[in-house]
Simulated assay, not measured.
Amino acid sequence: MNQILYKNILIILGWFFVLLGMIGIVLPVLPTTPFMIVALAFFAKSSPRFHQMLLNNRLFGGALKQWEDSKTVSRRSKYRALLLVFASFSISIMILHGKLGLQAMLVTIAIIFLIFIWHLKEEVM
């Protein structure tokens, strides 16, 4: 009974992170791939079917397979993510002109995201 409950909780969490990742496709402030990686980890422990579904997805399956195999990202993906974070946060900061507290918060979050992305290991060719 406890094993079934544990698996169901992991499946629910996996779908929650898939949903966040899907929202991230539309909302540039939310990063899609990290949420999908977390969902992949939950599904790996609870549902082989959902795990394979993510790995076979045509949009982000390749990046997830690479992450699962080698814990690396492509240099192109890394630079694209850095650019997207920089651009989306810059626009958000400009929109909040005159609201220094919110701007400072966004700058702090952007710096954390940029450092995190920068430190991801790149695939070795």
Rank of each mutant, 00 (worst) to 15 (best):
M1F: 05
Q3M: 05
L5T: 10
K7D: 12
I9V: 09
L10N: 06
I12V: 12
L13T: 05
L13K: 09
V18Y: 01
V18N: 02
L20D: 01
I23T: 15
V26Q: 07
P28D: 00
V29N: 00
L30A: 03
T33A: 09
F35S: 15
V38C: 04
F42I: 03
F43K: 07
K45Y: 03
K45C: 07
S46C: 04
R49S: 15
F50K: 06
Q52K: 14
L54T: 09
N56S: 12
L59H: 12
K65P: 00
D69S: 13
D69I: 01
D69L: 09
S70N: 10
S70A: 04
K71Y: 11
T72D: 05
S74D: 10
S74R: 09
R75L: 15
L82N: 06
L83R: 10
L84A: 10
V85N: 00
V85S: 01
I91P: 00
M94N: 13
G101P: 01
L102Q: 11
L102C: 07
A104H: 04
I109S: 11
A110E: 07
I112Y: 14
F113A: 02
L114N: 01
I115S: 12
F116V: 13
I117N: 06
H119P: 03
L120K: 15
E123G: 12
